[in-house]
Amino acid sequence: MSEFLFRQTPPAEPIQFDGEKCTNCGRCLEVCMIDVMLPGEKHPIAAYPDECWYCGCCVMECPEGAIRLRHPLMNQTRWVEKASLLKKEKE
């Protein structure tokens, strides 16, 4: 088990950086209209994640593909195979 930490529990973590790919160029941070991020040592920090509007502009702006946007779990739309509905119906 790792050390206990004290932290503010986040309601969601909308953006994640890939530390390997990120060059810390700051373009994502500069394009975000909400100013969700603050400058960080290795990559920007999502300082105000709860304010994220989930527009995806930071991802669209990143030249390295180093940032991911993920909707909170409750917001993950469900989809199914159409064939599975038809199959269930037959059974």
Partner: peptide, 14 residues
């Protein structure tokens, strides 16, 4: 929504 203020409306938080 204090947990997701950025998501609580259709238009941007701004």
């Amino acid at each position: 929504s204090s947990g997701h203020p950025g998501l609580c409306e259709f238009r941007p938080l701004q």
